[in-house]
Each structure stands twice: as C-alpha cells, then as structure tokens.
Amino acid sequence: MNEPTPEEAAAALRSVHEGKERVINSAAGSRWLWIVSGLVIFLYCAVNALFPATQVWLIWVLVAFTVALTLALRTRVGSALLGRPVTVSSRSLPLSFSWRLLRMAPVLGIGIVVALVVLLLHVPYGQIYYGALAGLYIATIGPRFQLWLLRRQGKD
C-alpha cells in the first residue's frame, strides 16, 4: 500500500472536514419550514390571547404539529418531503443536554423579557407580542442559530 505524503494526508483531512461542513450546512433545512414554524407559534399565541375559550384544544393542535414535524424529520421520507436531503448524525454530532438547553434559551429569554414588560407596563395581550417576537426569531434567526450550534458541536 502506498502511504500518502503529508500533503496528501492534509488534503484528505480537509476533505473529511468539508464533508462534515456540507452536511451541517444542509441541516438547517428549507427556509419555508422555519417560516411556517414561526407562523404557527405566532398564530397559536394570538388565537390563545384573543379567544381564551380555545385554549383547551388549541394546545393539542400545537402538540400534534410539533410531534408530526419531529417524527417527519427523523424519517427519510418525511425529511425528503420537508425538503431536507440529509439528516445530521446524532453519533457524529451528539447533542448534549447543555446544547439542547442553549437551543431553547432564546425563545425562553424572549418569554421572560415579554412577561416582565407586560407585568411592569401593564400591556394588554402580552401573549401576542410574545408570539410575534418568538415567531420572528424562529423564522429569521432560528436557522442561523441552528447552524452555529451544529458547528460548535462539530468542533467539540
């Protein structure tokens, strides 16, 4: 067997790194999925605030949407239907508890800030503002944050 030269070995290692980067870049998935998710969060909060009677069953709609989306993204056919040609390996990029928590942190942070503003300034329909901010975050910054997290995990 011909052993590669140090230059060839370095080039091969770069190619391995590039492969990982390509998978991570495609893992953010299609943009519309993030936009739909943001819209669902906004609509859920708005309907909840404007029609409190719907609270009982509306939560189940949200749970069903979340479960369906999560399951779809875990299957090959579901991922393909949602415009994701590849699923990131949990073996090569394992998501630790702290990373999972960090992924939730911005949405929780927005909730805390909005709750404080609503309480201190007595703003009506605080849920709608929360829904708008959280939805906007998910639709716009969500994919970039996901990419950043995956790249950080890849370096660990």
Partner: peptide
C-alpha cells in the same frame, strides 16, 4: 479521494439522499 469524500460526507449524516 472520491471514495473518502463520499464516506466523510456520509459520516456526518444518518441518511443522505443520493442526489445530495
């Protein structure tokens, strides 16, 4: 190098579409 590129790509994925 081509085979290494394919395998390296697949290593970061659970499943990848042929087209990807």
């Amino acid at each position: 190098p081509t085979r290494l590129a394919i395998v390296a790509l697949l290593a970061a994925a659970d499943w990848a579409e042929f087209g990807f």
